[in-house]
Amino acid sequence: MSNISLTPLFRRSIGFDRLNDLFDYAMQSETPNYPPYNIEKAGDNQYRIVVATAGFKEEELAIHLENQVLTITGKPAEQEADSTVELLHKGIARRSFKLSLRLDEHIEVQHANYENGLLSVELQRIIPEEKMPRQIPIGRKLSPAAIETDAA
């Protein structure tokens, strides 16, 4: 596997040191293929993760958020085998899974819904007021107290 150097990108950006680590992690880890999932953009700041969890009950699924990593896990409950049925083909995989997705710092989980074998997790980008774009005055030297009173 070849290494990708992001050094040219860092010449024109400040504070993106962790981005290189994120790319290294993405290049090393394998992309999970079970369960199948979609990441959808429903609006400028609205996102949705839809995970196909056929055969799982709602209580067999869990969603956990820690340090901006959203983890969706599924663990099927033990089922008694029906001795009167012979399985000729098993195409529905009811195996345990763990799907982890890293969220941006301003992405918040709004709610989750489970319907018709699909687990939907609604996300929204909420940018705090202090992170919103603002105009910087030129030519006047303002003290921090003056900036606060100008903003009010």
Rank of each mutant, 00 (worst) to 15 (best):
L6Y: 03
T71R: 15
G74N: 02
Q79L: 13
V50L: 07
S13R: 11
Q79V: 14
S96Y: 08
I63K: 01
K75Y: 05
E80M: 14
L70W: 01
Q68W: 02
V50W: 00
I14P: 00
Q28A: 13
Q79C: 12
N20L: 06
H64E: 13
F23S: 08
A42Y: 08
L22P: 03
R18C: 09
E130I: 05
G117S: 10
A146V: 09
L101F: 05
L123Y: 00
P76T: 02
F16K: 12
D17K: 12
A146R: 13
G74H: 01
E86F: 06
I14C: 06
I72C: 04
V121I: 15
H89S: 11
P144M: 04
A112D: 15
H111F: 11
A62P: 04
E58C: 09
K41E: 12
K90T: 15
V51N: 00
K90N: 15
V51Q: 00
R102T: 15
I92S: 03
S5H: 10
E115V: 14
L103Y: 01
H89L: 14
R125Q: 06
D24M: 11
D44F: 08
N116P: 08
H64P: 01
K41T: 08
R94C: 10
A145F: 05
E58G: 06
Y37D: 02
L99E: 01
R48T: 12
Y34S: 06
I126Q: 07
D21G: 10
H89M: 11
E129L: 11
